[in-house]
Protein backbone atom coordinates (compact mmCIF):
# COMPACT_ATOMS: atom_id res chain seq x y z
CA UNK A 1 0.00 0.00 0.00
CA UNK A 2 1.11 3.51 -0.66
CA UNK A 3 2.76 5.11 2.36
CA UNK A 4 0.49 8.14 2.26
CA UNK A 5 -2.72 6.11 2.09
CA UNK A 6 -1.44 3.77 4.78
CA UNK A 7 -0.73 6.66 7.12
CA UNK A 8 -4.08 8.33 6.48
CA UNK A 9 -5.85 5.06 7.35
CA UNK A 10 -3.68 4.72 10.45
CA UNK A 11 -4.45 8.28 11.53
CA UNK A 12 -8.19 7.63 11.39
CA UNK A 13 -7.95 4.22 13.05
CA UNK A 14 -5.79 5.41 15.92
CA UNK A 15 -8.09 8.34 16.63
CA UNK A 16 -11.20 6.15 16.51
CA UNK A 17 -9.66 3.46 18.73
CA UNK A 18 -8.49 6.07 21.21
CA UNK A 19 -11.82 7.91 21.40
CA UNK A 20 -14.26 5.01 21.21
CA UNK A 21 -12.38 2.17 22.88
CA UNK A 22 -9.65 3.37 25.21
CA UNK A 23 -11.38 6.53 26.45
CA UNK A 24 -14.34 4.39 27.49
CA UNK A 25 -12.14 2.22 29.70
CA UNK A 26 -11.90 3.60 33.19
CA UNK A 27 -9.28 1.49 34.89
CA UNK A 28 -8.50 3.88 37.69
CA UNK A 29 -8.39 7.57 38.35
CA UNK A 30 -4.61 7.37 37.99
CA UNK A 31 -4.46 5.41 34.76
CA UNK A 32 -5.35 6.72 31.35
CA UNK A 33 -4.46 4.25 28.58
CA UNK A 34 -3.16 6.03 25.49
CA UNK A 35 -2.16 4.50 22.19
CA UNK A 36 -2.97 7.08 19.52
CA UNK A 37 0.53 8.63 19.68
CA UNK A 38 1.94 5.36 18.28
CA UNK A 39 1.03 6.98 14.97
CA UNK A 40 3.84 9.49 15.56
CA UNK A 41 6.32 6.76 16.53
CA UNK A 42 5.44 4.86 13.36
CA UNK A 43 5.90 7.80 10.99
CA UNK A 44 8.39 7.08 8.19
CA UNK A 45 12.09 7.82 8.76
CA UNK A 46 12.42 9.89 5.61
CA UNK A 47 9.59 12.25 6.47
CA UNK A 48 10.76 15.85 6.91
CA UNK A 49 10.90 17.08 10.50
CA UNK A 50 8.73 20.06 9.66
CA UNK A 51 6.02 17.77 8.34
CA UNK A 52 6.40 15.40 11.28
CA UNK A 53 5.61 18.23 13.66
CA UNK A 54 2.71 19.56 11.61
CA UNK A 55 1.14 16.12 11.26
CA UNK A 56 1.66 15.48 14.97
CA UNK A 57 -0.07 18.75 15.75
CA UNK A 58 -2.97 17.73 13.51
CA UNK A 59 -3.21 14.37 15.31
CA UNK A 60 -3.24 15.96 18.74
CA UNK A 61 -5.68 18.64 17.69
CA UNK A 62 -8.07 16.03 16.28
CA UNK A 63 -8.08 14.11 19.55
CA UNK A 64 -8.52 17.36 21.48
CA UNK A 65 -11.53 18.21 19.34
CA UNK A 66 -13.15 15.00 20.47
CA UNK A 67 -12.39 15.84 24.09
CA UNK A 68 -13.57 19.46 23.70
CA UNK A 69 -10.41 20.62 25.40
CA UNK A 70 -8.07 21.95 22.74
CA UNK A 71 -4.32 22.17 23.22
CA UNK A 72 -3.31 19.42 25.64
CA UNK A 73 -2.70 16.50 23.31
CA UNK A 74 -1.55 18.80 20.52
CA UNK A 75 1.25 20.15 22.73
CA UNK A 76 2.35 16.67 23.83
CA UNK A 77 2.31 15.33 20.26
CA UNK A 78 4.36 18.22 18.89
CA UNK A 79 6.91 17.68 21.65
CA UNK A 80 7.46 14.00 20.90
CA UNK A 81 7.51 14.67 17.16
CA UNK A 82 10.28 17.21 17.77
CA UNK A 83 12.32 14.85 19.97
CA UNK A 84 11.78 11.72 17.85
CA UNK A 85 14.52 12.34 15.22
CA UNK A 86 17.18 12.85 17.94
CA UNK A 87 16.25 9.52 19.52
CA UNK A 88 16.24 7.75 16.17
CA UNK A 89 19.76 9.03 15.48
CA UNK A 90 20.91 7.87 18.92
CA UNK A 91 19.38 4.41 18.79
CA UNK A 92 19.67 3.40 15.16
CA UNK A 93 22.10 0.42 15.03
CA UNK A 94 24.30 1.35 12.13
CA UNK A 95 24.75 4.15 9.68
CA UNK A 96 22.11 4.04 6.98
CA UNK A 97 19.62 1.73 8.66
CA UNK A 98 17.05 4.49 8.51
CA UNK A 99 17.29 4.50 4.73
CA UNK A 100 17.05 0.73 4.43
CA UNK A 101 13.81 0.49 6.36
CA UNK A 102 10.72 2.56 6.07
CA UNK A 103 9.72 3.20 9.67
CA UNK A 104 10.71 2.34 13.26
CA UNK A 105 10.00 -1.24 14.36
CA UNK A 106 11.68 -4.12 16.21
CA UNK A 107 13.46 -5.06 13.02
CA UNK A 108 14.58 -1.69 11.75
CA UNK A 109 15.79 -0.51 15.16
CA UNK A 110 17.83 -3.70 15.52
CA UNK A 111 16.09 -5.69 18.22
CA UNK A 112 13.60 -5.47 21.03
CA UNK A 113 15.64 -3.35 23.45
CA UNK A 114 16.44 -0.29 21.29
CA UNK A 115 12.87 -0.14 20.04
CA UNK A 116 11.56 -0.51 23.59
CA UNK A 117 13.78 2.33 24.79
CA UNK A 118 12.63 4.44 21.85
CA UNK A 119 8.93 3.86 22.65
CA UNK A 120 9.46 4.05 26.41
CA UNK A 121 11.21 7.41 26.37
CA UNK A 122 8.75 8.99 23.95
CA UNK A 123 5.75 7.60 25.88
CA UNK A 124 7.13 8.96 29.13
CA UNK A 125 7.75 12.37 27.58
CA UNK A 126 4.30 12.44 25.98
CA UNK A 127 2.51 11.50 29.20
CA UNK A 128 4.72 13.72 31.32
CA UNK A 129 4.09 16.84 29.26
CA UNK A 130 0.39 16.06 28.84
CA UNK A 131 -0.26 15.50 32.54
CA UNK A 132 2.00 18.38 33.51
CA UNK A 133 -0.13 20.73 31.44
CA UNK A 134 -3.23 19.28 33.08
CA UNK A 135 -1.67 19.45 36.53
CA UNK A 136 -0.92 23.13 36.03
CA UNK A 137 -4.62 23.72 36.15
CA UNK A 138 -5.25 21.41 39.09
CA UNK A 139 -1.93 21.54 40.88
CA UNK A 140 -0.88 18.39 42.69
CA UNK A 141 2.67 17.16 42.18
CA UNK A 142 2.37 13.61 43.55
CA UNK A 143 -0.78 12.96 41.61
CA UNK A 144 1.03 14.10 38.48
CA UNK A 145 4.08 11.85 39.07
CA UNK A 146 2.08 8.72 39.86
CA UNK A 147 -0.32 9.30 37.01
CA UNK A 148 2.54 9.74 34.56
CA UNK A 149 4.37 6.59 35.66
CA UNK A 150 1.31 4.34 35.86
CA UNK A 151 -0.15 5.57 32.58
CA UNK A 152 3.21 5.11 30.88
CA UNK A 153 3.39 1.51 32.09
CA UNK A 154 -0.12 0.74 30.86
CA UNK A 155 0.50 2.46 27.52
CA UNK A 156 3.73 0.52 27.01
CA UNK A 157 1.94 -2.77 27.61
CA UNK A 158 -0.67 -1.69 25.07
CA UNK A 159 2.01 -0.77 22.54
CA UNK A 160 3.81 -4.11 22.90
CA UNK A 161 0.51 -5.96 22.49
CA UNK A 162 -0.27 -3.88 19.41
CA UNK A 163 3.15 -4.64 17.93
CA UNK A 164 2.66 -8.36 18.49
CA UNK A 165 -0.91 -8.43 17.18
CA UNK A 166 -0.38 -6.29 14.10
CA UNK A 167 3.03 -7.30 12.82
CA UNK A 168 4.14 -4.77 10.24
CA UNK A 169 5.94 -6.13 7.24
CA UNK A 170 9.25 -4.31 6.97
CA UNK A 171 10.97 -5.15 3.74
CA UNK A 172 14.67 -4.40 3.43
CA UNK A 173 15.15 -1.72 0.82
CA UNK A 174 18.44 -1.26 -0.97
CA UNK A 175 19.67 1.29 -3.42
CA UNK A 176 20.37 -1.36 -6.02
CA UNK A 177 16.85 -2.71 -6.17
Amino acid sequence: MNTLVKNIVRFALFILVQVYVLDKIHLHQMVTPYIYFLFILWMPFRMKRTWQMLVAFALGFTLDSFHHNPGFHAAACVLIAYIRPFLVNLLIPQEGADTNYEEPSFKSMGGFLPYFIFTGVLTLIHHGWLFLLEAWQFGNIWYFIFKTLLSTAVSLVLIVVTELLFARKQSFRTNTA
Binding site: M53, F57, G60, N69, G71, A74, L133
Partner: peptide, 22 residues
Protein backbone atom coordinates in the same frame (compact mmCIF):
# COMPACT_ATOMS: atom_id res chain seq x y z
CA UNK B 1 16.60 27.15 13.27
CA UNK B 2 13.40 26.68 11.31
CA UNK B 3 12.45 23.42 13.03
CA UNK B 4 13.08 24.77 16.51
CA UNK B 5 11.09 27.90 15.73
CA UNK B 6 8.22 25.86 14.30
CA UNK B 7 8.32 23.64 17.38
CA UNK B 8 8.18 26.64 19.70
CA UNK B 9 5.42 28.21 17.65
CA UNK B 10 3.27 25.04 17.74
CA UNK B 11 3.85 24.61 21.48
CA UNK B 12 2.97 28.23 22.05
CA UNK B 13 -0.17 27.89 19.97
CA UNK B 14 -1.23 24.78 21.91
CA UNK B 15 -0.70 26.48 25.25
CA UNK B 16 -2.55 29.54 23.98
CA UNK B 17 -5.47 27.23 23.14
CA UNK B 18 -5.33 25.65 26.61
CA UNK B 19 -5.24 28.96 28.44
CA UNK B 20 -7.80 30.59 26.21
CA UNK B 21 -10.27 27.73 26.45
CA UNK B 22 -10.16 26.88 30.10
Amino acid sequence: YFNLLLFLFLQGFSIYLIVHNS
